[in-house]
Design a protein around this nucleic acid. Structure first.
Lengths: 350, 350
DNA sequence: ATGAAAGCGCTAACAT
DNA sequence: ATGTTAGCGCTTTCAT
């Protein structure tokens, strides 16, 4: 009946394990970090001591010497909100897209033992705070989701020289790897579908034209139509929200009541577009066929279910995590971006 | 033209600031941590030196000595998925609810300078990993979102004795504070609305009956109907997803084709319910009135827009953050839970 | 009010 | 292959 019976409140350290196993701290450290050069016998002994003591390494101490934290930041950068608007974070978090990105990242990070710190940047102060956080070495790298083209953060992030990956191609030229889907190819698939369904009076609801992704979807749309000999197709701009999509569709429809096909640059906006079309008495897809973009849950929730361009969000997020971990390991490697191929998911709306 | 011109790659430390300011490290530390006992003159000097050098404290070093990390974990605990199912994380992350919780938490954590680490627990391994992570002192506290009643995590978390707050009342008796909405009151509001609209043949689509929240919504529904002299109302159980809601409604409808009102225990399920009702040829709300629960974006996306019981998700999440920060500061305080009042949001479906 | 000095727990040379 | 030792950057007694 020794004092061992009651485990002390004091956390177990390397020292304790070393004493229990009858070896030095260095050896315990080697075993814990699975260094190759350890005698199998001692290794067993240490492993048993670790088990017996319930030892868990102290990350702060480890980081202090290794200069690594085994964690990365997922940074969501949004446009500053005016004081009138409510508290609580902006659009990104209420978009189902966000959760899927988190899921894809976690899928790669967890097996690698890397934690994810979630940060929101939406004004000068939070941007400054985030940048010091980075420079402090709080995290080993960053995945940045930036939602607007005028965002200075991608460039500032690149200037830190620290490992980072962008979700989507940035607006200007930023020397940072990014992951995205081939926007033009996606738009082309949508158009081809509409045309093959016999539609000729085709319009589009585009996303915010200060965002590269939205621009490319619009350009891809036009190029694809041109390939079918159609030019000057009508379009309206919206903000990637459902309500925005509904309003833009109203504008488009009032000017072009004879539309028989619409490419909507996001499923959320398409949800709004369907509402507007239905209320305007159009039958879907008989009178107007609609193709969305994303293949989010919203597409399935639509009535009729939405034919849409699938963006493999989770796979893309997983790739971002892989790219980032790679750059953390080999900071010298040249920044390699990845572009995914979209696919068309055929449902009822077109 | 000194060597100062080119800032060294080596990060600035307390030592550097001390030298620049001509004081000891201790004094710099006091200034940085705004200790009261510092001469105003020295304080200025130090502040200037901090500014000049661009000093940022090293969190690892600080944590090592303070035993605090200024970060908390947001843990999502989900039921283990069968190997057949795809990789990538489960339901929680694709639920718009999740993003709103994140938003509410961040709203309180950011001003407090506390970071949020996102973790997913979905099997024994990840549960064990999370618990060591906690015991290692990686984070100062935990917000746990547990999605199923059989989850052992709330109890295990309580047993660590570390600061923690639960999102929603736990299944058994767990000595941990929680935040939730008054589920029964919410169900009563829904029923009262349906009854006041003249409905008498009322049914409900309940959530998974192993979840306390789902149970209480069902009980509240029955109690409220009883208060109106209605008993034996039909019900069907679903899993809080849109598809599940659609199927459950089909079952309910086939057995009770004369229903004229339905309380659906979540907006997502209500979205599915509306689809089923519409396809069954019911006019909404003339033939069947529907009331949902949550007031999520899904409610607005419904056609017709969904009358629903609003759960102030962001406010509740903010309260969780406040509770947790309080317990981190005063671990002795008794665990105080908070129950929020729901409100009815009137739209077109009832 | 300030400084000197002792660690916090760990890893990585270096020595053996 | 193993142990010894010197820090990593910071806070916090303890003197002064």
């Amino acid at each position: 009946m020794t004092a061992d019976a009651l485990r002390p409140a004091r956390p177990v350290t390397l020292e304790d394990v070393a004493r229990t196993a009858g070896v030095s701290r260095a050896t315990v450290s080697r075993v814990v970090n699975s260094a190759p050069t350890v005698d199998p016998v001692l290794r067993r002994k240490v492993q048993e001591a670790v088990e017996a003591t319930g030892y868990v390494p102290n990350q702060a101490a480890r980081s202090l010497v290794t200069q690594r934290t085994d964690s990365i930041a997922l940074v969501v950068s949004e446009r500053e909100r005016r004081p009138v608007e409510a508290p609580f974070v902006g659009r990104m978090f209420t978009d189902p897209h966000f959760g899927r990105v988190v899921g894809g990242l976690l899928d790669v990070l967890r097996p690698a033992g890397v934690q994810m710190v979630l940060m929101l940047v939406d004004d000068d102060t939070s941007r400054r705070q985030f940048l010091s956080y980075l420079r402090q070495g709080h995290v080993d790298g960053t995945v940045l989701v930036s939602s607007h083209a005028s965002d200075p953060l991608p460039r500032l992030l690149a200037e830190t020289g620290l490992p980072a990956v962008l979700a989507g191609r940035p607006a200007g030229t930023v020397p940072l790897p990014y992951v995205e889907v081939d926007q033009r190819a996606g738009a082309r698939m949508a158009v081809d579908r509409l045309v093959s369904e016999g539609r000729r009076r085709i319009g589009t609801i585009a996303g915010p034209q200060d965002m590269p992704a939205a621009q490319e979807r619009l350009e891809g749309f036009r190029d694809a139509l041109a390939a079918h000999g159609i030019t000057g197709a009508p379009w309206a701009e919206a903000d990637f929200t459902r309500v925005g999509g509904a309003e833009a569709t109203r504008r488009l429809l009032s000017q072009h009541p004879d539309l028989d096909g619409v490419f909507v640059a996001s499923d959320l906006m398409a949800q709004g577009a369907l509402q507007t079309l239905l209320r305007a008495g159009r039958r879907l897809p008989q009178d107007v066929a609609v193709v969305g973009f994303d293949d989010s849950e919203a597409a399935r929730a639509c009535e009729p279910a939405l034919t849409t361009v699938r963006q493999p969000v989770e796979e893309m997020a997983a790739e971002m995590a892989r790219l980032l971990l790679g750059r953390i390991k080999q900071p010298g490697d040249s920044p390699l971006s990845t572009v995914f191929r979209p696919t068309l998911v055929e449902r009822a709306s077109a």
